[in-house]
């Protein structure tokens, strides 16, 4: 199941694990990324908490946790090469995997059609 947030994150949900990243639209708006800071595996977040930081040449931006849960894995590849977020934002450049506290909460997020409408 693929879901989106109004803060431009995507979630690929398999069982109670959500793989989270930022959308191609968000990556395009941010421009060339030069730094990514990810949470530690084991960290727990509530929906809306700042879970990661991305920085372009110009500015730093927060990446919000889309649902309540615990980080079980992070993607070191985007820390080593932040440009991957610009080149493959919805594939190889996932940010972290989240064990969802309540998988059914994902139903309230946007589906792909609703997200496309949001970004116009």
């Amino acid at each position: 199941m693929l879901k989106f947030t109004e803060e431009h994150e995507w979630l690929k949900i398999e069982g109670d694990i959500a793989t989270v990243g930022i959308t191609g639209h968000a990556a395009g708006q941010l421009g060339d990324l030069v730094f990514v800071e990810l949470p530690e595996a084991g960290a727990t977040f509530s929906k809306g908490d700042s879970a990661a930081t991305v920085e372009s040449v110009k500015a730093a931006s927060d990446v919000y946790c889309p649902l309540d849960g615990e980080v079980v894995e992070v993607n070191q590849a985007i820390v080593d090469d932040p440009a991957l977020v610009n080149s493959d934002p919805q594939g190889a450049a996932w940010f972290f995997k989240l064990k969802l506290a309540d998988p059914s909460a994902a139903n309230a997020l946007l589906d792909e059609a609703a997200y496309k409408e949001l970004i116009g």
Binding site: G31, D32, V34, S56, V57, K58
Partner: peptide
Amino acid sequence: PVQYPEGVLKEH
């Protein structure tokens, strides 16, 4: 203009 399609890194 803050940037053109090439982006800040390439422009720099």
